[in-house]
């Protein structure tokens, strides 16, 4: 400190109590019930898969991140947790680790680190895994008899295949779409998570609670999940009523990764639009893509792809929904003037 009574500092001068670190850690806390539930349902496998994907993210961030990025802000932790929650319980650990590393390196660090990435790193990591190991990532092992038994092939050696012979089960979405005797899973099973599926997508209730907590704290933009869920409900309801889809709207809402995606993935502040108008467009786009891919696509689930595709559109949405400067003429007029009009 020098003796001058006037201090010169760079802006910002007013600091709120909010900081990236705080927001990130409260997201981590809000995920705690979901993580706990996944361990409750899937046993030690869930712990191992989550640890592997978190380790993939943290180690990559530490090794290749620039000086400014640090592990303490919790963002790498969130990416790892979210990625882990989208993986099946029997997933080989080396693949989970690889997914975390890929998502971190090419979804985030290559764009310059936190705040500058275009794609949600967790989802990019998962998309890579989906493309690389399509069978392993869609193999849902049946529940073992004891909670302590590992599910599936967690311990497959690096670069080696899992043994897919283990007894498997279809997810509610997969069953309804590709099953030989499609059944609509009862809503209570979907809500409380007694179905096969990825670690974090089975219990819709807990996800909803976590999401509401975040929204209440003001850490997520409620426009996004609301617009996604409303679109999915309305569109799938429409298709169901006119008879071109076999998916009832409530089933659509509570099955698969929709809740996880709508509350935790799509709302990522960095990869969602800036304005509320943009957020609505973004959410409607995700909802529509989810419905289209689920009903007509080659895969039973489309939430991941829907969000990634809309992530790619975010820069464009931001451009299109840029609020005009106060007092400036509407864009059309401005453009006409630029072209030398009267």
């Amino acid at each position: 400190m020098n003796d001058s009574s006037i201090r010169v500092t760079a802006s910002p001068h007013v600091r709120s109590a909010e900081s990236t670190t705080r927001i990130m850690w409260s997201v981590v806390y809000s995920l705690a019930p979901v993580v706990a539930a996944s361990i409750w349902f899937f046993g030690p496998s869930a712990v191992l898969v989550l640890l592997a994907s978190v380790a993939g993210c943290l180690i990559t961030e530490r090794l290749f991140g620039s000086v400014r990025s640090s592990l303490a802000d919790g963002s790498a932790m969130i990416t790892g947790l979210l990625l882990g929650l989208t993986l099946p319980p029997g997933f080989p650990l080396w693949m989970a680790f690889l997914g975390g590393a890929f998502g971190m390196a090419f979804g985030k660090l290559i764009f310059g680190g936190l705040g500058q990435n275009v794609f949600n790193p967790a989802l990019l990591g998962r998309a890579f895994l989906q493309a690389a190991f399509p069978v392993a990532i869609t193999t849902w092992p049946s529940k073992p008899e004891s909670w302590w038994t590992l599910q599936g092939d967690n311990l497959a050696l690096p670069l080696m295949s899992p043994v897919v012979d283990a007894a498997t089960e279809a997810t509610p979405l997969g069953n309804l779409k590709f099953g030989d005797n499609p059944v609509i899973t009862p809503l209570t099973d979907l809500l409380f998570g007694t179905t096969a599926g990825s670690l974090g997508e089975t219990s819709a209730v807990l996800l909803l609670l976590g999401g509401l907590y975040l929204a209440f704290r003001g850490h997520l933009n409620w426009h996004i999940p609301v617009s996604i869920l409303v679109t999915v409900y309305a569109l799938s309801g429409l298709f169901y009523v006119i008879g071109i889809s076999q998916f009832p709207p409530l089933f659509m809402l509570f099955s698969g990764g929709l809740m996880l995606g709508a509350f935790y993935m799509a709302t990522d502040m960095v990869t969602s639009p800036v304005t509320n108008k943009g957020c609505w467009l973004f959410g409607i786009g995700i909802g529509a893509l989810v419905v289209v891919i689920r009903i007509w696509g080659g895969l039973p689930e489309g939430v991941m792809y829907a969000i990634l595709l809309m992530n790619a559109l975010v820069p464009f949405i931001n451009r299109a929904t840029q609020p005009r400067k106060f007092g400036s003429p509407p864009r059309r007029v401005a453009e006409k003037k630029k072209e030398g009009g009267p």
Binding site: I110, L299, Y305, L308
Partner: peptide, 25 residues
């Protein structure tokens, strides 16, 4: 190291990954 072509190719790869969601449609 990623400025220019490197980043463009990785973005293209990511877009291509995302577009795989449309497969089978």
């Amino acid at each position: 190291i990623a400025k220019g072509t490197g980043l463009t190719l990785i973005i293209a790869g990511s877009l291509s990954l995302a577009f795989m969601g449309f497969a089978g449609l």
